Amino acid sequence: MDRQQRCAELHRAYRPQILRYLRRRLPAEDQVEDVCADVFVKASRNLGQLRAKDKPVPWLYTIARHQLANHLRRIEQADHAQELLTAAWREAMEKSAEEGALDRVHAYRALATLPANDREALLLTT
């Protein structure tokens, strides 16, 4: 049996078990499907590690456990990055509002020092 046939056989025989394992650990079906696909991609790449005498189920569950851990780390990192971006955005918006108000105060003070005709010309062009 060649490599491609062996991969197809593993997928056909053990995909339901891996899906059940992942469904108990992940909240969304799309995540389950993605991680399951990752499991079988990894398994196909590392098929040479599976010896003929080895049982594929423990090997596939090990791969699934590692892929699940990687997936959960990526989610955690993405959530953390989102929190950092949200905090930075809020800080930037607060600073921008304060700075914008100060800029307007300074501009009005500068306008007040100009002669009326110059002030009117600037106000009409902005």
Rank of each mutant, 00 (worst) to 15 (best):
E9T: 13
L10S: 01
H11T: 06
R12Y: 11
R12T: 14
A13D: 12
P16C: 07
R20F: 03
Y21M: 03
Y21C: 01
Y21N: 01
R24T: 03
R24M: 05
R24N: 10
R25A: 04
L26V: 04
P27R: 13
A28W: 11
E29M: 10
A37F: 07
A37E: 15
V39R: 02
F40P: 03
F40N: 02
F40D: 00
G48I: 12
Q49W: 12
Q49Y: 14
L50Q: 06
L50P: 09
R51E: 14
A52R: 14
V57R: 13
W59L: 08
W59R: 05
W59Q: 05
W59S: 04
T62S: 11
R65C: 00
R65T: 08
R65H: 12
H66L: 11
Q67R: 15
A69W: 09
R74M: 13
R74Q: 15
R74W: 08
E76V: 06
Q77V: 08
Q77D: 13
A78Y: 05
A78N: 12
H80P: 00
A81P: 00
A81Q: 14
Q82K: 11
Q82W: 01
Q82N: 08
Q82I: 00
L84P: 01
L84H: 04
L84S: 01
L84I: 10
A87P: 00
A92N: 08
A92Y: 08
